[in-house]
Computed example of a mutant assay.
Amino acid sequence: MAEVEDLLEGVAVRLSPAEEIRAKGQRRRTRSRALRAGAGGAALLVAAGAWALLPSDDQATRQTVTTATANPFRTDGEIQMLRTDELPGNARWHWKESASLPAGAGRRSGPLPQVGLDEACPASFAARESPGQKAYSLVYTGRDHALAQYRVVEYDDTATARSQVAELREEITKCGLRTVTPTAREKEEGSKAWSGTVQDGRTLRVTVRRWNSWVSVAEVMDGAPSAG
């Protein structure tokens, strides 16, 4: 202490205890680290914000699907019918394309809003005026008497297509079918699905999709009618 006082020309200087000096140093280092961490955190937040503005692969895919302007039902003038492996239940029934329904299987559905292969929903077959349309249809047969049909209908305008889908949904509901979760592929396409047991005991599943003035309907019915 005396040597320090002599060096400062008689001005007394009180030195802090070693413990207090170390404590102050520790506080300064802590504040410094906090400031650096805050600056780094802000940089990370800015980076995270920038990434948030970029769509993920899934988001980009969804955006492409929902904003696509290409007609999903017709490519280069050719109508796109479902392949057998694109029909629901293919792993179980092993679908095959057929020119017509098998003998004794009844008849296929005609213009919308008819629904139900083999007239499984007979009320929808009531006579009614059909709007201007072009229809394309394909039948499939599967194991254990399973039947399927895919229809693509082009209407004169979008408003007509929309109204026909509304009527079709009413007929589906009258037939006793209820909304079910669509497959991953159907959901991506924006399709809606219904399923239920029809009056002869078979299960009917119907998928409906609309794009502008175009409508597609996929119907899958399992097995043969129950006895009696």
Rank of each mutant, 00 (worst) to 15 (best):
Q63R: 11
T64D: 10
T64I: 14
V65M: 14
T66V: 13
T67C: 06
T67D: 12
A70I: 03
A70M: 05
F73I: 06
R74S: 10
T75L: 11
D76C: 04
G77P: 08
I79A: 07
I79T: 14
Q80V: 14
M81C: 07
M81L: 15
R83Y: 01
T84Y: 02
D85N: 15
D85V: 06
E86W: 00
P88C: 00
R92C: 06
H94N: 14
H94P: 03
W95C: 06
W95T: 09
K96S: 14
E97F: 04
S98G: 10
A99I: 01
L101H: 05
L101A: 08
P102W: 06
P102T: 05
G104V: 05
A105D: 08
A105I: 00
G106C: 02
R108G: 10
S109Y: 04
S109C: 04
P111Y: 00
L112A: 12
L112E: 05
P113Q: 07
P113N: 07
G116F: 01
L117G: 03
L117M: 09
D118R: 09
E119F: 08
C121N: 07
A123P: 05
S124Q: 08
F125S: 10
A127L: 12
Q133S: 12
K134T: 13
A135T: 15
Y136E: 11
Y136N: 12
S137T: 14
L138S: 09
V139I: 09
Y140P: 10
Y140I: 10
R143N: 15
D144V: 03
D144H: 09
L147Y: 02
A148C: 11
Q149H: 12
Q149T: 03
Q149V: 01
Y150R: 01
V152I: 15
E154F: 00
D156F: 06
D157A: 11
D157W: 03
T158K: 11
T158N: 12
T158F: 00
A161E: 01
S163I: 02
V165R: 04
V165D: 02
A166T: 15
L168N: 04
R169E: 15
E170R: 13
